[in-house]
């Protein structure tokens, strides 16, 4: 087992990088799509249900099937893999953005409006800062999903750590399967940890400080 790590160190690092790269691009695009969409949804409540239903449905498509569906349209390689993973990352981010925006206290929003904030100012100065921790936790959730699912991307030739697992399956080499799985798990854990730190730093200071002072 150890020999897997010692003999393939350089290659493992390369594949890890590939894996991270695919996941990162997918989450980045997913975030850029889902956050503005989530904000929009929180403002126009009519279409909220429809959009959230569609994204939940996309979420239920089996991941391997979704990857396979990409092949006729986009061929094999990194691009279809990134697109498929990106679709998966949408729902948690969209959901959390929507929830985060909804969670902002109505009275605080009304105060902003009564003070003469434009809708854009209210969004930038009040709603986004207060919704940020919840949005960020959606991004973190997505990131962990996407990193583990990116393993399957190897199936359509996108590379990454999934290569070890699929090779291991084909050649029936247990140490390849286990070794690949260990690295993916570690990667997911590390990213989760780092993003949880980011998430915490996103909580506005005024919300972290508690403690009364009597009048």
């Amino acid at each position: 087992m150890m020999s897997f790590f010692t003999e393939n160190t350089a290659e493992i690092l390369l594949k890890t990088w590939e894996h991270l790269y695919i996941s990162f691009i997918a989450i980045l695009i997913g975030t850029l799509l889902a956050v503005p969409l989530g904000i929009l949804l929180s403002k126009t409540k009519k279409i909220t249900k429809i959009v959230l239903t569609i994204t939940s449905m996309l979420q239920t498509v089996p991941s391997l099937a979704l990857l396979a569906i990409m092949i006729p349209f986009l061929g094999v390689g990194k691009t279809p893999a990134i697109i498929a993973l990106c679709i998966y990352s949408l729902l948690p981010i969209l959901n959390n953005t929507f929830t985060g925006m909804q969670s902002v206290n109505e009275n605080v929003k009304a105060a902003g409006r009564a003070m003469g904030m434009t809708p854009a100012q209210s969004l930038r100065m009040v709603e986004l800062p207060l919704a940020m921790p919840i949005i960020m936790s959606g991004i973190r959730l997505s990131a962990v999903y996407v990193i583990s699912w990116a393993t399957l991307a190897s199936y359509i030739g996108a590379g990454g750590l999934g290569d070890y697992i699929f090779n291991g399956l084909n050649l029936f080499k247990i140490d390849l399967i286990v070794g690949g799985a260990i690295v993916v798990t570690l990667l997911a854990l590390v990213v989760d940890f780092l993003l949880s730190r980011v998430e915490r730093s996103m909580i506005p200071k005024g919300l972290r400080i508690q403690g009364g002072r009597s009048s």
Binding site: N105, V108, A110, G112, G116, L130, G206, L207
Partner: peptide
């Protein structure tokens, strides 16, 4: 609204 002061019920300070 910027020219008229407004004190909202339930205080409504910006917590952040």
């Amino acid at each position: 609204r910027r020219s008229i002061g407004y004190v909202i019920q339930q205080i409504g300070l910006m917590p952040h």
